[in-house]
Computed example of a mutant assay.
Amino acid sequence: MVLLARPCGADLLRNAAKVDATLEALCHHARIPPSHKPNRRGGYVTLPAGCGFGGGRTCPGSYANTAHNAPLVQAVLDNPAIQRVARYVNAGLQAYFPKLHLFYCNLLACILGDNPEIAQMFEGCCYSACHLNLHNASTVDHEDWYNILFGMCAVYSSGHFDHTRSGHFIAWSLGVVTQFPPACALYVPSACITHANTPIAGHEMCSSIAFFMSAGLARWYQNGYMSDKEYKERASVEQVQAWNASRAKLWEVGLELLQCD
C-alpha cells in the first residue's frame, strides 16, 4: 500500500519554496566529516532528528548530531515552514489511517511522559523522528527494518527537479512506480516494502523529510518500559510464553490499525 498526497492551494505551494530553501541551506552549512560514508540507503547526506530506541541504546533517547550540526538541525525543526510540513503529514495520516495515527499519538505521549529529558520533535505531529535527506536524495533498494513493521512512514518531497523524468518512487515489493513531485507527501510501510527512488539529473536538487516511528519505542512501551532483553530476564516462563504469542500475532494488530472503519 502506497498513498500519495498532493497539496492544495497557493499558500501551501509558497510554503514549499521556504522548505526548499531551508533544507538547501542546511546542506550548505552542515559539516560532514571526511570519514563520512554513504548510508545504506544511498550516497546522499542525511541528518537525523527526534527520538528512538535501538542500535545499542539502553533506553529511548534523542538522535545525536555533531556539535556543529545539532543547532543547525534544531533551527530547521523550529522553522515554521518545516513545522507546517510536519502538521501536513500528521493530518494525512490521521485522515487515511486514523487508528494508526491514534496509536502513534498515544505511544509518543507515553514515551515522552516516561522520559521528560526527551523533547518532542514537532508539536502537532504524531511521528517521533525524521531524517533530513539533503540535495540529491536518491535511494537504492532498501527496507527500513528499524521502523514499526505495520507502520506507515511519511516522506515529503522537496526541491527542483522534473518529476516526470526523475525522482520516481518505486515500491518493488508491490510492483508500483509513481511520480513523486516536489511538495507532495507519500505514505508507505517502509519496514516491509522494498523501495527506492530514481536519481535526478546533475543540475537538479531533490531533498526530502522522512518521518517515522521506531519499532524499538513500541517494544519498550509494551515491555513495561524496558528492553526485550531485560523483560525476558525478569519474566516468568508463563509471561515469556505470552510475550512470544503476542509477537506472533502482531500482523493481526497491524491489519486492524490500518483499517479506516
Rank of each mutant, 00 (worst) to 15 (best):
K232N: 13
A86P: 13
V253N: 15
G50I: 02
S35Y: 05
T139Y: 03
N106C: 13
T164V: 09
G92E: 04
P48S: 02
V19K: 02
G216A: 07
F122C: 09
G216D: 13
P48R: 04
C59G: 12
A210K: 05
Q241A: 14
L93S: 00
S128N: 04
D20R: 10
Q120A: 15
A185S: 04
S214M: 08
A210S: 12
A245V: 06
H135V: 12
I209D: 05
Q259S: 13
C125Q: 06
K18T: 07
C105R: 05
A129Y: 00
N15Q: 10
I32R: 08
P38A: 11
Q179P: 02
Q120Y: 13
Q83G: 05
E24S: 12
L149Y: 07
L77T: 01
Y63T: 00
V237Y: 15
D228A: 06
M1R: 08
A129F: 01
Y104E: 08
S138D: 05
N115A: 00
H28Q: 07
G9R: 05
Q94H: 10
M1S: 11
M152T: 00
Q83C: 06
L23W: 03
A70Y: 04
L217K: 04
G92I: 07
H28M: 09
V2R: 04
H195C: 12
N79E: 02
H168E: 08
S158A: 14
L149T: 03
R247W: 07
P38N: 08
L107Q: 04
A30G: 01
H28A: 12
F211A: 13
Q239F: 09
A81K: 10
S128W: 02
S227E: 11
A25V: 00
L257D: 14
S157I: 00
A171E: 06
V89A: 02
F122N: 02
A67W: 08
W220Y: 08
E256D: 10
M1K: 13
M152N: 03
Y225V: 11
W172A: 14
P181N: 12
A248K: 15
V76H: 14
A64S: 15
P199Q: 00
S173R: 11
I200M: 01
F103E: 05
L93V: 08
G54A: 07
V45F: 15
Y63F: 13
L258I: 13
P33F: 12
I82F: 01
A91K: 10
V85G: 13
V85W: 01
L47M: 06
P98M: 01
G43E: 05
H168F: 15
R234H: 05
G216Q: 12
R41S: 13
E143I: 01
T46E: 15
H36F: 01
I111Y: 11
P182R: 13
E143Y: 02
E252S: 10
A191S: 04
C126W: 03
A245S: 11
D228P: 03
N223C: 14
P33R: 12
N90T: 08
V19F: 06
G9C: 07
